[in-house]
Nucleic acid binder design. Structure first.
Lengths: 216, 216
DNA sequence: ATCGCCATCAGCCGATCGGCCGATCTCTCG
DNA sequence: CGAGAGATCGGCCGATCGGCTGATGGCGAT
């Protein structure tokens, strides 16, 4: 049972390179190559490959749009999509994975990982480039405790109480009421928090709280 | 520059198997093998390998404990740790990654991924078994697209631009500047956003954005 | 071509926030 | 005991935000 693969990339060199790498595997068969997003959608629907390799940067439709169309939420018979890109910007990663991609590869990953990513996708699994994974894990892995301690001037327990409420959208009045203190106290705490975090306003405090996992 | 690896596993067959696979690579050198967690800690400190391959199930100290000791938060000179296990239970994964592991492999992953995981770890990256990754991504993937559409009155593209900037702590002035519109326009958008989301202030907008994955 | 949606802009005003000064009380640590 | 840190409170004031009302132009659908 060979894995049928569609390659979509606007650079000819990349297309042929990938094709040579993949066709050299006995269990993988490249059934089509296209150079833009619109063709990718059409070819994917016609050829029904097991795995689609999509570049992010493509004319007409970018890889993320194509992913949404072929594998996004609400699509019946979603296809397996592996995103391949030169850029590892975070928004690409999240956008791709949220759109339904089951793989995310940087072009500098080497042929081995390309092959493994295709096999994983065909099996319904997902392989993500190690250099990207390490950042994904940081978001997921070491919440709260680490973030609070990593400040050169850590927040006190009471300040954390304030942070958590602010991050959920409470006004100073509401925070005061919920913590049974006066408005002044809340403002004092907020002042210290801003200094410690280097935040310019309460929304930056909230953003820090969400990013660091202090709230979730 | 060869990658120096320490293998810790209580099963002799696994140890020798891994050793054969890794030693066959020119760039990888197995510098030690141990059969329990306590020895792993000792050997890691003495040999200072570039990468430690740790089984989860080991006598004395399990792999996660060892990871915490060698690479956990607050450890200076943390080591690179790849967890290897037969079981892919979620608690193991989260426990391992939270403890500082930079890789998570199932024993059925095949030699290729083992080698790539070691190389990735040595480079400071992280490789996670595809079958595990796919579940990690499901935690990450769902929201966003869904969240925006699940509103009975969805946000427009422009409103999303505003949301994203607000969620990162920008003031209205700054949002206006970054989007090349006037302050009035930003305020108008914010008004509509608040109505649509049922938010009472900008921090609740930000909280929604973080929760739903519109920003991350 | 008229209607509705979207994006754009303006001004006004009260509420909230952010920055600044100050203060008292408690607790811990040396 | 004295020093320092943390939590508590008050007042003042300018900046920002939130709510309102209203207006213009583009663009697609009926």
């Amino acid at each position: 049972m060979t894995i049928r693969v569609l390659i979509a990339d606007d650079q000819e060199l990349v297309r042929t390179g990938f094709q040579m790498i993949l066709d050299a595997q006995q269990d993988i068969d490249v059934v089509g190559t296209v150079a833009n997003g619109a063709d990718a959608v059409e070819a994917a629907r016609r050829l029904r490959p097991d795995v689609c390799l999509l570049d992010i940067r493509m004319p007409k439709l970018d890889g993320i749009e194509v992913t949404r169309i072929l594998a996004g939420p609400g699509v019946e018979n979603p296809m397996r999509v592996v995103i391949v890109t030169t850029f590892d910007l975070d928004e690409y990663v999240y956008g791709a994975l949220r759109s339904g991609a089951t793989g995310f590869l940087l072009k500098d990953s080497g042929p081995t990982l390309l092959i493994e990513a295709v096999r994983a996708a065909a099996a319904g699994d997902a392989l993500v480039s190690p250099s990207v994974t390490v950042r994904l894990l940081q978001h997921l892995a070491q919440p709260a405790v680490g973030a609070v301690r990593s400040l050169n001037d850590p927040l006190t327990e009471r300040e954390l109480d304030v942070v958590r409420l602010v991050a959920r959208g409470r006004t100073n009045q509401e925070v005061a009421a919920e913590l049974f203190v006066s408005l002044s106290t809340v403002k004092t705490h907020l002042g210290s928090i801003q200094v410690k975090l280097g935040a310019r306003n309460r929304v930056e405090i909230a953003a820090w709280a969400w990013e660091s996992g202090v709230v979730s």
